[in-house]
């Protein structure tokens, strides 16, 4: 009976002191408004100062694992992009 099956939504939360939204799980809701209310009730227990995103699962475009190499291959020949590549002289702070 597909007329009573609610679509799936993915939920992302950024905590009050957080810097980015994290994926925390999913839930079912008939529309965006109720998805938001449900997300607050289920994933934040209505903590204040929390930012919520809800996205219909079917709207998410995910990279294919096979393509990972091309998209995400750490440029091994560009390791100078990583701070650990450099040695900081002893005693020099804040670097």
């Amino acid at each position: 009976m597909s007329k009573d099956i609610w679509p799936l939504w993915e939920v992302f939360v950024r905590s009050a002191h957080g810097l980015a939204h994290k994926h925390v799980g999913s839930l079912h809701a008939p529309d965006a408004e109720m998805a938001m209310l449900n997300a607050r009730d289920v994933y934040t227990r209505r903590n204040e100062g929390v930012s919520l995103w809800v996205v219909k699962s079917t709207d998410i475009v995910a990279s294919e694992p096979a393509a990972n190499e091309a998209l995400f291959d750490a440029p091994k020949d560009k390791s100078y992009r990583y701070p650990t590549y450099f040695t900081v002289p002893k005693g020099v702070k804040h670097l």
């Binding site: 009573d4 099956i5 609610w6 008939p30 529309d31």
Partner: peptide, 15 residues
């Protein structure tokens, strides 16, 4: 609860 879930989807469709 079937009628409730159906109603919510019907509303969404109408909107």
């Amino acid at each position: 609860g079937a009628w409730v879930r159906e109603a919510a989807l019907a509303y969404e469709r109408k909107v």
